[in-house]
Design a protein around this nucleic acid. Structure first.
Lengths: 219, 219
DNA sequence: AAATAAATTTAGGCAAACCTAAACTTTTAT
DNA sequence: ATAAAAGTTTAGGTTTGCCTAAATTTATTT
């Protein structure tokens, strides 16, 4: 398998290239990885020898198909662990990253399969970013703002656009979190607020202010 | 902090020394760590410089108090992850070790605190070995063989002394696993079998053969 | 278009953690 | 008690992944 350092380079290339599309420069990598450009050149030569990247000196680097596959696997692991940390261990968003960064390098197919199952096959991580499938497919699902749903329509919370503690606490109290199943029960035309049922067992009326900050994907 | 390699040495010394009591030889370490004796000498010099071990050349090595503290922390992490893997992700005993071996090196105090909480502060791992407390205390709880309990007495299963599949399957079928709450309901003097209630919701009669293979700690 | 600036690579080193081979202690056997 | 055997350490090497400094290539100015 690949070393932790190699995995971090691949992940960084994936992110900086926007999903493997564009070429990435040595300095860009050195900045996100917090190493010197010389070290990056070094590693790119190695990754190239392993056919994980296409590397053209002085020009830039891109992931090969194999490189992309590896990148998506790491991202899948990272995001599944983030879901675990937030949903099961009640980590806050800012506490999550540092730990997931370590867990993503644990090697075990079985572990990830089972974790995925345990978490109920989540499709997005706590930041609302999509989780690649076991087959390595990452489809960015269409996200709609909650205020745009009509009566009767359903959605799964995938992103919240305000990370102020007061707002997060409010959502917490109401019982809304990433992954919650919502359905619009009724619309109050007077002020555009909506009555929303949460996970089929309770309902609240959300002001249009709040509705604008919550995003959902299709169930 | 300490590197993964250092942590593995410390853990190995702890185990081979029987909890830090006796001195450990270079070859013993080289065997459990699957490295050459020369590499062990190398590392012992380093650990000694960090005051994690008392190292006397040609004689052997022992953990310092600090070394023991570190060892217990690692063991705590390892065992908590084992509980997680078995209880939550349904790993079998033999699948557990390799993965826990990796997870135990993830660095985060918060992670372990929360994991412990999430698992309900378990006191033993799936093999029945005790889990060191957050303060680093490992109290070897008194283990009694199930056959020694009197009527009305309770115990929590902490160890099973027969790992033949047939026996484990039998226990599984009956509903006994590590952590099960047992209570002696009745004693049948004729053949020393006992009627045992399991987790307060069912009861079985166990032969003295079986009773001899199950160990419990106080609830 | 030449000169300067910026980015990148190469060369040579370092620390960690391993290795083999040789030297040294300790133990065991004669 | 001494020689052989066993165990341990030291010396010198390797690989990985990082570093600095110098050389090289590409981009930007004038």
């Amino acid at each position: 398998m690949h070393s932790t350092a190699e995995e971090n380079y691949i992940k960084a290339i994936y992110k900086l290239s926007g999903g493997g599309a564009n070429a990435v420069s040595t300095t860009a990598l050195s900045e996100t990885l917090e190493t010197k450009p010389a070290s990056v050149s070094d590693m790119l030569r190695k990754l190239s020898a392993k056919d994980l990247v296409h590397y053209v000196k002085y020009y830039g680097v891109q992931l090969t198909e194999e490189g992309k596959r590896v990148a998506l696997k790491i991202i899948r692991k990272h995001r599944l662990w983030e879901v675990f940390l937030v949903q099961k261990l009640h980590f806050t968003w800012d506490e999550v990253h540092e730990v997931a960064e370590q867990m993503e390098h644990v090697k075990s197919e079985l572990l990830i399969q089972r974790l995925d199952e345990f978490l109920g096959h989540p499709r997005v991580d706590p930041h609302g970013d999509p989780i690649p499938s076991e087959a390595g497919e990452l489809r960015q699902e269409e996200q709609r703002v909650l205020s745009s749903l009509a009566v009767e329509q359903k959605g799964v919370v995938c992103r919240v656009k305000d990370s102020q503690p007061a707002f997060l606490q409010y959502l917490n109290k109401v019982g809304i979190q990433i992954g919650s199943q919502l359905q619009v029960v009724d619309k109050i035309p007077y002020d555009n607020s909506l009555e929303i049922s949460i996970d089929k067992n309770r309902s609240v009326i959300l002001s249009s202010d709040v509705l604008e900050k919550i995003f959902v994907i299709n169930p």
